[in-house]
Amino acid sequence: MKKSITTTVEVSGKGNTKQSAFSSALNNVQKTILKETNNVILRIEPVDVEIISAEHKKTTEKFMFF
């Protein structure tokens, strides 16, 4: 029996670059969906991806005020 289900999932990701943060978030999609259902899922395809918020932090480390 083949069934198609569409659901909305909100995930987050962190990384050193934009690409790694986005990749981390997409990897969390499967984990989140599998937690929410008891069905066997064969394939997960993103239909639409929307960025709700993005934050960029830049820090400078100083050692002994140099």
Results as ranks from 00 to 15, higher is better:
2 K>P: 01
3 K>Q: 09
4 S>L: 15
5 I>Q: 07
5 I>K: 02
7 T>E: 00
9 V>Q: 06
9 V>K: 09
10 E>S: 11
10 E>L: 13
11 V>L: 03
12 S>C: 12
13 G>M: 00
13 G>H: 00
13 G>Q: 01
13 G>Y: 00
13 G>L: 04
13 G>K: 00
13 G>C: 01
14 K>W: 07
15 G>E: 01
15 G>N: 03
16 N>R: 15
17 T>S: 14
17 T>I: 08
18 K>V: 05
19 Q>Y: 05
20 S>V: 14
20 S>M: 14
20 S>N: 14
20 S>T: 11
22 F>L: 12
22 F>D: 13
23 S>P: 11
24 S>H: 07
24 S>R: 10
24 S>A: 11
25 A>I: 01
25 A>P: 05
26 L>M: 15
27 N>H: 06
27 N>F: 07
27 N>S: 08
28 N>E: 06
29 V>Y: 02
29 V>I: 07
30 Q>S: 14
30 Q>E: 15
30 Q>R: 14
31 K>G: 06
32 T>D: 10
32 T>R: 09
33 I>F: 02
34 L>E: 10
35 K>N: 11
35 K>I: 14
36 E>K: 13
37 T>D: 02
37 T>L: 02
37 T>S: 09
37 T>P: 00
38 N>F: 06
38 N>G: 02
38 N>K: 13
40 V>D: 09
40 V>E: 14
40 V>P: 05
40 V>Q: 15
41 I>Y: 05
42 L>P: 01
42 L>W: 06
43 R>K: 14
43 R>C: 03
44 I>W: 01
44 I>H: 04
44 I>G: 01
45 E>W: 11
46 P>N: 12
46 P>D: 06
46 P>Y: 08
46 P>G: 08
47 V>S: 03
47 V>N: 08
48 D>A: 13
48 D>M: 08
51 I>H: 11
51 I>R: 03
52 I>R: 08
52 I>K: 10
52 I>Y: 12
53 S>P: 10
53 S>R: 14
53 S>V: 13
55 E>Y: 11
55 E>R: 01
55 E>P: 06
55 E>T: 13
56 H>N: 13
56 H>E: 13
58 K>G: 03
58 K>P: 05
59 T>E: 03
60 T>N: 07
60 T>K: 05
62 K>V: 09
62 K>G: 03
62 K>R: 09
63 F>S: 02
64 M>G: 15
64 M>V: 14
66 F>N: 12
